[in-house]
Design a protein around this nucleic acid. Structure first.
Length: 260
DNA sequence: ATGACTCAGGAACTGAGA
C-alpha cells in the first residue's frame, strides 16, 4: 500500500497538478493539507471519478485538510481532541481497510507558529501537546498507524539548506524541535530518515527569492510510523520534481510503501 | 533587506503562509 502526503496550497489552484501526480505516483491513500476551501467547495466529484473515496475537513479561506483513499475509509474523525475552542481545520483521522489488514491514517497540518512573539507560537506548542496526547492513546492500540502531514517543524540542521537563517524561526526553535522529539520519541519512525540519512532532502521551497533555483529548502512534511507500520515499511521518497512544474505548490509530495 | 511570491477574500487592498 502506498500512502502519501502533500500540502497543495489551495486545491482549487492545484487540481490539475494533483490529478497528474496521482496518475504518475499511483498512491492508494493521500493526505492533503492547505486545501484552502470549505468542505462543500472541494472538487470531490473529480477525485471520486479517479477511484478515490474522499473525506474533507474544510474551512473558509485557509487551512483545511482532506483524505483520499482507493480503499474504504472508516472511523473518520475531523479535528484533534483537546481543542474545544479551536475552529481551525487541521486534522483528520481515519482507518483504511483492505482485505489483508488495516492502517490508521492521520492527515495533519500543524500550526506554523510565526511570529514567535505573538499568540501563534503558544498555539503551535499547545497543538503539539494535543498531538502528543492523541499519539499516546493511539500507540497503545499497537496498530499500524501513519501520522502524515505538514508539521511545520525542521527536525535537525540536516533538514535545512541554511540553518543559520532559521535559528529564531518557529519552525526551528529549540523548543519546537524538543517538542517534536518528544512526539517522535513516543515510538515513531520518521519514514524518510528510515531509508535515507543524506542531507539535502527537502519538501518545501519558498516562492520568494529564487529559493527553488538555489535549492534553499527545508524538510517539514513528515510521515511518522507506529512500530507496527514501521515493521512493514519497504520504501519512502520525496517527489521533488513536482516543485519544477508550472505554478506549483511550495510543498512537494512525500510517500511511503507499506507491505500491507 | 522582517523583501523578493502566491494564495483567499472580494473588488483595493490585507492577512497568511514559512
Amino acid at each position: 500500500m502506498r500512502i502519501a502526503t502533500w500540502n497543495v496550497n489551495s486545491i482549487k489552484q492545484r487540481l490539475t497538478h494533483l490529478t497528474s501526480w496521482l496518475a504518475e505516483r499511483q498512491p492508494d491513500v493521500v493526505c492533503l493539507q492547505e486545501i484552502k476551501c470549505v468542505t462543500d467547495a472541494f472538487p470531490r466529484l473529480e477525485i471520486e471519478a479517479l477511484g478515490y473515496n474522499v473525506t474533507v475537513h474544510g474551512q473558509k479561506g485557509f487551512n483545511g485538510v482532506a483524505l483520499l483513499s482507493k480503499h474504504p475509509i472508516d472511523e473518520v474523525l475531523h479535528g484533534l481532541a483537546g481543542g474545544d475552542a479551536d475552529v481551525q481545520a487541521r486534522f483528520i483521522e481515519a482507518v483504511i481497510s483492505t482485505k489483508i489488514g488495516s492502517v490508521r491514517v492521520v492527515s495533519l497540518y500543524l500550526p506554523n507558529g510565526n511570529p514567535v512573539d505573538s499568540e501563534k507560537y503558544p498555539y503551535k506548542l499547545k497543538w503539539m501537546d494535543r498531538l502528543i496526547q492523541f499519539s499516546r492513546e493511539r500507540l497503545a492500540l499497537e496498530e499500524p498507524m501513519v501520522l502524515a502531514g505538514d508539521y511545520n517543524v525542521i527536525p535537525t540542521p540536516e533538514d535545512v539548506h541554511n540553518p543559520a537563517a532559521w535559528v529564531n524561526d518557529a519552525l526551528f526553535l529549540p523548543q519546537t524541535r524538543a517538542k517534536y522529539r518528544e512526539l517522535a520519541g513516543l515510538g515513531f519512525t520518521d519514514a524518510i530518515r528510515a531509508v535515507n540519512d543524506a542531507p539535502g532532502l527537502y519538501t518545501f521551497w519558498d516562492y520568494q527569492a529564487g529559493a527553488w533555483q538555489k535549492d534553499n529548502g527545508i524538510r517539514i512534511d513528515h510521515m511518522l510510523l507506529s512500530p507496527q507500520a514501521a515493521d512493514r515499511l519497504t520504501d519512502a521518497g520525496i517527489d521533488r520534481h513536482v516543485r519544477s512544474w508550472e505554478k506549483p505548490s511550495d510543498h512537494v509530495p512525500v510517500y511511503i510503501d507499506l507491505d500491507l
